[in-house]
């Protein structure tokens, strides 16, 4: 690509299609924001489905949500808020040009993301052992010919006692429970998928910065991945009270 008509400015290098660095930076941010609008609508449809069924079957949803471990959810909220904080710092240092601290913040963010996934593994593992994944093994509530519906899960036992919650009987309509867990697994699963994509993006970003790739000319790539990550955090801010803390 010819850079012959690119104006010389005092900022970083400019791609061939832009006039100056300011235009380039603003254009990237506008593009990222319009993509985030897409993401809002993407999760928005799921929140609508949640709202409808929660409104229709509030009592059942309240009873079923007691199967979720609110302490684990809270821990994940803490982890994600922290990661959002480290990303904000990473962008701050990227803007200041302090690559060393920027890399440390990005690394902390990736650690948080893995921590989030680890917590999710414990949660999902326990749910699957309890037959609460809504596939053909799904089983909820009292079963005829069985003394007590009680399934052990190694995932629960491995937890430190601080994070364990009191076991609740499986009350409520089993079909509504299946509906609840369908939406729960869809929403948290898609959110988890976004976390995994976030890890990939952060890792790629760190590698590109490390090898001083020509793709990273300024702070904007960090800011864009950061925007995406804040959005992931934003979704969880709403998921946590809506799933783990349903009031009576």
């Amino acid at each position: 690509m010819s850079h012959s008509h690119t104006k010389e400015t005092d900022g970083p290098e400019v791609y061939f299609q832009y006039e100056d660095i300011e235009q380039q930076q603003e254009t990237y941010l506008v593009g990222m924001w319009s993509f985030l609008v897409t993401e809002v609508m993407f999760f928005g449809a799921l929140f609508l489905i949640y709202t409808l069924y929660r409104w229709k079957f509030h009592d059942d949803f309240y009873l079923v949500h007691e199967q979720l471990n609110w302490k684990m959810g809270g821990l994940n909220t803490l982890i994600l808020l922290t990661s959002s904080f480290t990303v904000a710092l990473a962008v701050h240092f990227a803007q200041k040009g302090n690559t060393k601290l920027q890399m440390r913040c990005l690394f902390a963010t990736i650690l948080c993301a893995f921590g989030f996934l680890a917590v999710k593994t414990f949660e999902y593992g326990a749910k699957i052992d309890h037959n609460l994944l809504p596939n053909h093994h799904f089983q909820y509530g009292h079963v005829e010919g069985e003394e007590e519906h009680h399934v052990e899960s190694k995932w629960d036992k491995m937890l430190p006692s601080v994070l364990q919650v009191e076991k609740k009987e499986q009350h409520g309509n089993p079909q509504r429970a299946r509906l609840f867990f369908s939406i729960y697994f869809t929403m948290t699963g898609l959110h988890g998928l976004h976390v995994i994509i976030g890890i990939i993006c952060f890792t790629a970003l760190m590698i590109l910065i490390k090898i001083k790739s020509s793709l990273i000319t300024d702070y904007v790539p960090t800011e864009m991945v950061g925007l995406y990550w804040h959005f992931v955090d934003l979704v969880w801010i709403f998921l946590y009270p809506l799933y783990y803390l349903i009031p009576k």
Partner: peptide
Amino acid sequence: FGFGIFSPELGGD
């Protein structure tokens, strides 16, 4: 997976 978000037998619409 057999999730039932639109499935009427689970109460979905």
